[in-house]
Nucleic acid binder design. Structure first.
Length: 687
RNA sequence: GCGAGAGUGGCGGAACUGGCAGACGCGCUGGACUUAGGAUCCAGUGGGUAACUCCGUAGGGGUUCAACUCCCCUCUCUCGCACCA
């Protein structure tokens, strides 16, 4: 899966290193944002494309992943199925192999285009100056351009001779570096045909087209229409396509693919945009690529017993980028593990993403210096217990980097028999980024809000609480200091409640079994209900979607109720203490320092962090009365407090007796009454 | 162009499977206590209206007793990929 090849690679001149395709963002380096250039180098690659199909297929298993990330990965892999077909070159013992996903439009091909750097280009092109001109002027593809080679290709479907162009928009890296051009059914080809006055032949008519002409007008100039103003790229019915005329495109694709294979002029193929992963980096800080180059034996892997290769420590950093390993003679010069002769170490290190592709597996193993392979294979392996990761959290920026590489690594490790699962992360939460002045907050951009002055003014707990309260985690957050005050006030209020009443609160204790005691006052039991409801809400909000913002909001509601609670009896004080304690427990993950401090102020001797997370009692949490919403024709007209456990008929009767309802209904006929249990009544009346 | 997501008060955001739109917080308005208030507390706060009530979840249609939520069309924004044949 690891191989070395000489090729054009992405090169960051500022970092003085190679970058993977995934690390180039809008033609810029992912780390320093310098413009990336292409450089021809011999580099190490990992054959991630061997796993393209599995990486794609298993996307469907990633149920706990956001749709967006899955879409990005599928898109990145970029699978397309089609055919490769050979077009003979007229008067030459050569052919051009083209790739197309639309073999149903083969009869509409009116010219062929090959890439500027296609192997045949030099051969076919007599006008060397013109070619150079094209390369220099239009190599960047700002505008579609091409030149006629003077040669023609023979369309194997109908024997037609069509011109061969060299075109700047044809990519050598994808497919075969050559295409058939069907201007009637591909907009790019259409634009090109317009520019160079090439013929346009319609071979697909939309399915809604009135009675497609079947089998008529074969060959010759028939079907050549110049009237159309844009390409029709959709599905339809074939016309002017010989024996295939009259077929629907989907069926025709199948039949024509079969025809091509039967005739031996081409075959079905699958193409991916996905490229192999270049992992060589000209950096010091990375895992050395464990390879030795021997003058006699060539490339020799460092034997397992000599692993890991340790980076030398006494190297000179010049601060100009590039790897200092290149100048460390001690590191470079070594012996060949095979013949013992003079050899040289690889000085490139691995892409940082190689390490991060499997660290989560290593993290499961507690022991320090271990034989990793045997540890993984052991049946008692902690990896078996912990993996796959239940919940992974990271930024969206890893969608086609870390998250793709890790999926690849896990599959490779599985195929090596080291692990027995295929996907590393069951659930994925892509948390939003903090945005400042329209850009992602980052050190390199310098648009960072220094939290220190806010911490000095309000404390770390306030800042944390506010950050969690501001937005749900998956959302981007445009940072603003506004609102920090609110979190601060909230904590201060709770603080005040505890310290103002600490004498009374300290001496009381709440006995859970007293919940039905007749001593419990009405407002006391209301507070207890709210407390249990809050425990439930906070717990489920955290567990369900990590929605800390609504969890904090629920906590604020509880504290509001606590603040307005006026204890009278001893039992009231006990209820208050219970509520305050629960509130502190619920608060402890969000504002640990304040929670711990107040916990102690209540007279507790041990840390709040040694307490269990509180449970709620569904019975106590239940409202004893519900507010019934009364609608007439779907519009809110009245509300009614009703006790629990009342029948639908009774609810109906109560609603109809409501004076407001009576006014509105008047003499009109009641068509229907809909009762939604415990919630609402809707009375439908006639006009 | 393709793919994904989003659009709710002045602002950040709530609303679980269709069932009270605007929870909670910021801000704002008025009041109390105050030498003072940028502290605290109380009341109010989607819009129009004196009020009944009406209008409101980007816009337009539809389904439904009932739509922020479901369906169709349109617009805007964000992100990803992109002459990928």
């Amino acid at each position: 899966l690891a191989y070395r090849k000489y090729s054009f690679v992405n090169w960051c001149p500022s970092c003085v290193t190679v970058l993977a395709n995934e690390q180039v963002i809008d033609e810029r380096c992912w780390r320093c944002e310098s413009i990336v250039v292409q450089k021809e180098l011999e580099q190490w690659f990992l054959k991630i494309t061997d796993y393209a199909e599995e990486l794609l297929q298993r996307c469907d298993e990633l149920e706990g992943w956001p749709e967006r990330v899955i879409a990005m990965q599928k898109n990145w892999i970029g699978k397309s199925t089609g055919v490769e077909v050979d077009f003979k070159i007229d008067g030459m013992d050569e052919h051009i192999r083209i790739f197309t996903t639309r073999q149903d439009t083969l009869f509409g091909a009116t010219f062929v285009c090959i890439a500027l750097i296609h192997p045949l280009t030099e051969k076919l092109f007599s006008d060397k100056d013109g070619l150079e001109n094209l390369k220099t002027r239009y190599g960047r593809m700002d505008e579609k351009s091409g030149l006629f080679t003077g040669f023609r290709a023979i369309n194997p479907m109908n024997g037609e001779k069509i011109p061969i162009y060299v075109a700047n928009f044809v990519l050598m890296e994808y497919g075969t570096g050559a295409i058939m051009s069907v201007p009637a059914h591909d907009q790019r080809d259409f634009d090109f045909a317009q520019k160079y006055s090439l013929p346009v032949r319609v071979v697909i008519v939309p399915p809604t087209h009135p009675s497609p002409p079947r089998g008529e007008g074969e060959g010759g100039g028939e079907g050549l229409l110049s009237a159309i103003t844009e390409a029709y790229e959709g599905e339809g019915v074939l016309v002017h396509s010989g024996q295939f005329s009259g077929l629907k495109s989907a069926i025709a694709r199948e039949r024509i693919a079969q025809f091509i294979e039967d005739k031996g002029i081409g075959k079905r193929v699958v193409n991916y945009k996905f490229r192999d992963w270049g992992i060589s980096r000209q950096r010091y800080w990375g895992t050395p690529i464990p390879v030795i180059y021997c003058e006699k034996c060539g490339i020799v892997p460092v034997p397992e017993k000599d692993l890991p290769v340790i980076l030398p420590e006494n190297v000179k950093f010049k601060g100009k980028g590039g790897s200092p390993l290149l100048e460390s003679e001690k590191f470079i010069n070594t012996e060949c593990p095979v013949c013992g002769g003079k050899a040289r170490r690889e000085t490139d290190t691995m892409d940082t993403f190689v390490d991060s592709s499997w660290y989560f597996i290593r993290y499961c193993l507690r022991k320090g210096n271990i034989d990793l392979a045997s540890a993984l294979r052991s049946l008692e392996s902690e990896v078996r217990y912990w993996m796959p990761v239940d919940q992974y959290i990271g930024g969206i920026e890893h969608a086609v980097l870390h998250l793709l590489y890790s999926r690849f690594f896990v599959k490779v490790m599985r195929d090596l028999g080291l692990i027995d699962f295929s996907e590393p992360f069951k659930n994925l939460l892509t948390q939003g980024m903090v945005i400042k002045d329209g850009a992602k907050m980052s050190k390199s951009k310098g648009n960072v809000v220094d939290p220190n002055h806010l911490i000095q003014k309000y404390g770390a707990d306030t800042l944390r609480l506010f950050s969690l309260f501001a937005a749900p985690p998956e959302k981007d957050l445009e940072w603003s200091d506004k609102g920090v005050e609110g979190a601060y006030r909230f904590l201060k209020r709770l603080w005040g409640i505890v310290y103002k009443n600490s004498d009374k609160l300290r001496v009381t204790s709440y006995e859970y079994k007293d919940k039905n005691s007749s001593l419990i006052t009405h407002h006391s039991s209301q507070l207890l209900r709210k407390t249990h409801q809050t425990i439930k809400r906070v717990t489920t909000d955290i567990e369900r979607e990590y929605h800390f913002n609504t969890a904090v909001a629920a906590l604020m509601e509880l504290v509001n109720e606590i603040a307005s609670f006026k204890p009278g009896t001893h039992e009231d004080w006990a209820s208050l203490r219970f509520s305050v304690e629960r509130a502190l427990l619920l608060l402890s993950p969000f504002a640990p320092h304040v929670a711990e401090e107040l916990w102690e102020a209540l007279g507790n001797k041990s840390s709040i962090f040694e307490e269990r997370w509180p449970d709620w009692d569904e019975e106590i949490a239940k409202e004893e009365r519900i507010e019934l919403v009364i609608q007439v024709n779907g519009k809110l007209r009245s509300k009614l407090l009703i006790p629990l456990g009342i029948t639908d008929d009774e609810i109906k009767e109560m609603a109809l007796q409501e004076s407001k309802v009576k006014d509105i209904v008047g003499r009109k006929t009641i068509k229907k009454v809909i009762v939604v249990k415990g919630k609402l009544v809707n009375i439908v009346i006639g006009g």
